[in-house]
Design a protein around this nucleic acid. Sequence first.
DNA 1: CCCATGCTTTTTATATGCAAAGAACAGGGT
DNA 2: ACCCTGTTCTTTGCATATAAAAAGCATGGG
Lengths: 302, 302
Amino acid sequence: MKGNAVYKRSYNGCLAMCGSLQLGACLPSENELAQQLSVSRTTIRTVMTGLEAVGILSREGAIRRLSRHPQPEDAFPDTQTQSTSATVERRFLEWILDGNIGPGYLLTAAELARQFGTSTTIIREHLPHFQHFGLIERRPNSAWLFKGVTPAFANEIYEVREMFELRAARSFAVLPDDSRSWRHMRMIEAEHRALLKSIDKDYSLFPNLDERLHRTIHETTDNRFIKDFYDIISMLFHYNARWDVEDEKQRAFAALTEHITYIEALLGRDLKAIDQACRQHLKTARSNLLRSIELRMTMPPA
Amino acid sequence: MKGNAVYKRSYNGCLAMCGSLQLGACLPSENELAQQLSVSRTTIRTVMTGLEAVGILSREGAIRRLSRHPQPEDAFPDTQTQSTSATVERRFLEWILDGNIGPGYLLTAAELARQFGTSTTIIREHLPHFQHFGLIERRPNSAWLFKGVTPAFANEIYEVREMFELRAARSFAVLPDDSRSWRHMRMIEAEHRALLKSIDKDYSLFPNLDERLHRTIHETTDNRFIKDFYDIISMLFHYNARWDVEDEKQRAFAALTEHITYIEALLGRDLKAIDQACRQHLKTARSNLLRSIELRMTMPPA
DNA sequence: CCCATGCTTTTTATATGCAAAGAACAGGGT
DNA sequence: ACCCTGTTCTTTGCATATAAAAAGCATGGG
């Protein structure tokens, strides 16, 4: 009735720990393992029992020792280490953002449950989350309306994003030199410069860097609502990468250049330059997104 | 297993309709009734059966006639016309905002279910909503952390609110004279002037007017995220009224005056005046809220 | 052919059941 | 006194069950 993803993830975690242990060495205490993996001792004990059953551990009384080194095939596959809930969330987003349905489509919990092979409980728990993302809208006592990943959606997101990021960027500029964010930003700057040199082959590393830059900026506001909103941007951004593969290298290069200007303005505490660089970059990002959305609307994927 | 709040609400709705009917008159068609009350025909049919059972309606074949006028006691009490879900949501918010728990308190779904007399299913469906409000935070596989209605909470809300409302107000100013929002605003202005005259006795009507003014402004942005955020403000505002009863009259008067300045600036399309009035009003509102929160934190309610 | 109503099928709202995971308690060793 | 393991008790994650409500289909009258 309940999956055992936590068990499997912890099992894999323990396997990894065992890997760096000498044969015959005894394991840390249950409490310590539990803390390291952020799970309860109960789970650790179940894992230990499992490891003993396959002969990786042996125990004398209360002491457990490594009796053979774990092999890669001892581990559970990654697909099984995520809770049903997380899996459904991910698959649902993929399904929606891959364009399987268009604006106006009515989503019924019962149908989705069948489609994803879970119960309606899980579906009903997740739909409000996508409402928060602005993707769907509730009809009381009835189905959910899919609003679509439309130009309007992108524009509304970017309208808010611009306000938030401008404010965050300004607040970044007045933080002390030795704040965590500033140290972070200097690292990110270095990574940008490094990536710029090898952009021809490493352009696919850019999205991750992009996300980290913007998140670092947003985090400085210390405002739970602004941070929360960044999850929406992040979601959209993450999945946009799925469709928009054309010209990826050029776009990465252009964005990288804009980022560097932006970062220089930030580290230079030049408010005017910050505003300008921020606006310019978001404008580019917005039109990239819009272009990609419009392209997809005229020729939906097979 | 499922409440019948929809039935009861529709039943009351039909009673009200019957009230304005002549004795012996025949009712509208089932379809029409269903549409009027925004429920399914199935529900209407069940209601009709109920009304026949208590002798309010009589039927010959397919025709239903009013056979006696409904009395007030025929109606279901209002408490029974709301779904379990809605009731829990309301009671939970009241419970939290009335200060029954402090920041740092751990909420467990099981306990809440017992406390509110429902199943954990409902509770689990609602907690994410309060997370969206910024009131609680999730600990995976464990309890929820109540973050408290603290000064930080108020400040973070107002930081965002200011950005959104300034932008909305500016976009309001460029709408055409005959737009729905402008007509709306002129009505609201009239109500403000009327209320100003009778503020001594009618000050308790102010909160409703306040909400309508700000919502009218926010609606003009046509941005789902901004509108969505206004629900949080609204919630806080609504419940703030529960604690903050002292000096209510003075505060209503002060706010009313600020509103009128604000509205004049808006209707005058004077961008600079709008900015100033908006900032000024939000500043006052924020400090009222902060004062009330700080007061409550030093002397929590019995 | 358009709308009625009657009847059937599907979906939603909510409670309950149960395995997995977490938390609390208890004795024992250092 | 602390930390460790064994044990028990509670809570969470998820599926299922069921009444209420919605949606769909059939039939019949103007």
